[in-house]
Design a protein around this nucleic acid. Structure first.
Length: 111
DNA sequence: TAATTGACGGGCA
DNA sequence: GTGCCCGCCAATT
């Protein structure tokens, strides 16, 4: 099995209960920026993962039909608040630790 | 081997 | 807010 999938799975498992993340963020957290599609694929093929905690950019559910309903239900059951059809990322987005030395741009204040 | 697909992301009109 | 296009990467057919 590829290392990529293992890293992605590991990253997804780190998302704590009551928090969520996005495909792109998981990909970056796993060390593969730009591989957001593989995250979706992995979620689809691997079981035992907190799949409902992974959303699309902006905290939007990218699933369809019943799966989307179920995902929303599960998240709300964990205490995740929705704003319209998106999750309130401001409060529930989980940030992955920097895989590699990160460049801290300005923080807080600036320009 | 090549083409298609998929639970994506970001930019622009 | 909505719609369209292009870039990304692996698995499937």
């Amino acid at each position: 099995m590829s290392d990529m999938r293992q890293k992605i799975v590991a990253a997804i498992r780190k998302i704590p209960r009551g928090k969520v993340s996005t495909y792109g963020a998981v990909a970056r957290g796993a060390g593969y920026p730009g591989a957001s599609r593989q995250v979706a694929w992995t979620l689809h093929r691997s079981f035992g993962l907190p799949w409902h905690r992974v959303l699309g950019a902006g905290g939007e559910i990218r699933l369809r039909g019943d799966s989307a309903i179920e995902q929303r239900l599960r998240l709300e059951a964990e205490g995740v608040a929705f704003r319209g059809r998106r999750v309130d990322m401001r409060k529930h987005e989980y940030r992955f630790p920097r895989a590699k030395a990160g460049k801290r741009k300005g923080r807080g204040s600036c320009p």
